[in-house]
Design a protein around this nucleic acid. Structure first.
Lengths: 255, 255
DNA sequence: TTCCCGCCTTGAGCTAGATCAAACCCGACT
DNA sequence: AGTCGGGTTTGATCTAGCTCAAGGCGGGAA
């Protein structure tokens, strides 16, 4: 318990059982080098590596909750995380589906505001927390990192937040198709027969938050897509034909 | 004409008539000091002031179009600008209503991508363009500016882009009410009798893009709001009672 | 002045998706 | 095995907002 506080693990993680909150040394991790932190000089990278802490979390854990004060930036070394925002009436909106290798929580951190979203773990994940203090220290003297982070934050309003995905212009079926196309390059693998395999344990409710409709509507849309042999949803396996997805999208995704 | 090219005025501005494209010296302008550029040292501020150029543009002018390559950051010294995004099918979405004193175009500039939106002038405006080269030069050595700009960009996904404003959860009437509440503190003045006055020449169509519905629906919602004595829309004048707006919003705006 | 074009308003119908409800499936727990 | 609870499916109904269409208003140009 004392150790956990030392690690600056956010309170929401304190619920984790001992087995999943393994302290991991975080050696030889290339993830950070691939992300915006590629701009770091070796000495600076060493500073970051020395300070950051990693842990393993299971599905359902929240890395942080809407309203929490940011403590730093999270780096998702493996697994999947869903960022959602809930309004006062309790309506949940999916903002971003985070894949392994991506950073989490940086927007609120740099906005210097409480987290505007909740980060919930979808699949067993290994997560690093890079404390804010180190970040500011390194930023102080590395202009290239500043530029890389500005680019990261500026590009954050990704495709999943594209207004056209939620506007009244697309049917539920089209929105679902667009969603698959949007996350395709980051989380789908191509099967030998050319079809796409998405391995994500998304509930109907979670999908619904991402395209702004009700879960029942997703059920019906899924049914339609199967009937038209465009895509099948079996548990956490989604298998789809790229050609038919593109055809069903009708209007190409912009930008 | 040669002078205009010297000024690095974007091509979309080249359409302006001579009278509105006045070259203004941009002296004694406090706007930049109030914005993120407050982090600048006097010498750096002088660099920026030396390089930037200002011009006066009329309603309908576009500062830049979706797809254009960013040339720098615009500073709106006076007037109003609407940022919109259009998808391949021609559906327009209003992203941000820019008020005087605010910066424009910084997101795409720092994303180092073509502009994702079009900036259209709503009321006669005076605009400064701060060329990208100066920005990078100053950023190189001023970590405080980097932090301020990170904050600016991170906070950019403002309330108008809040998902709850477009989701299926709010009626058109409620969305319109929320829109007024959202822009209130930045563009409404309080009349002697306590009511709010918004002085903005917004067409029904422009309002519709901001809340993601059809112009006809706005017409009907406006009619309702007048009937219920919540707000009146006369040309470019919107007069509303704050109390009744808040009551009509039902669910308080989150965050 | 007249014409014209774009914006606004209002009406009438239609339809996609929300809403409510029932039944089913399945894994976790006792 | 039995129970329980959450997720899913499917049906029936309802309604808000889209769509199309017609008419009015107003400002700018010839």
């Amino acid at each position: 318990m004392t150790e956990m506080r030392q690690l600056r693990i956010p309170p929401s993680l304190a619920r984790c059982t001992a087995t999943e909150l393994t302290r991991a040394p975080c050696k030889n991790c290339g993830v950070c080098a691939d992300s915006a932190f590629g701009a770091l000089a070796p000495a600076e990278l060493k500073m970051v590596k020395a300070e950051r802490r990693s842990c393993v979390v299971r599905r359902g854990t929240t890395l942080f909750n809407q309203g929490d004060e940011p403590q730093g930036i999270y780096c998702l070394r493996s697994g999947h995380v869903l960022l959602t925002q809930t309004d006062v009436a309790g309506n949940e909106t999916g903002l971003r589906l985070v894949m392994s290798g991506e950073l989490i929580g940086f927007r609120s951190f740099f906005a210097e505001e409480p987290h505007a979203a909740t980060a919930r773990v979808l699949t067993p994940s290994r997560v690093c927390l890079i404390p804010g203090a180190v970040l500011w220290k390194v930023l102080e003297r590395n202009a290239a990192l500043a530029r890389a982070l500005l680019r990261l934050v500026a590009r954050d309003q990704g495709p999943m937040q594209a207004p056209f995905l939620r506007g009244p212009w697309l049917s539920v079926r089209e929105r679902l198709v667009h969603l698959l196309l949007i996350i395709r390059d980051r989380c789908a693998e191509t099967l030998p027969d050319g079809r796409l395999l998405f391995d994500l344990p998304l509930t109907r409710r979670e999908i619904a938050t991402m395209v702004g409709v009700r879960p029942e509507s997703i059920s019906r849309a899924v049914h339609d897509l199967r009937a038209e042999e465009i895509a099948t949803f079996n548990g956490h396996r989604i298998i789809a034909s790229l050609d038919r997805l593109v055809a069903a999208a009708k209007t190409d995704r912009p930008h």
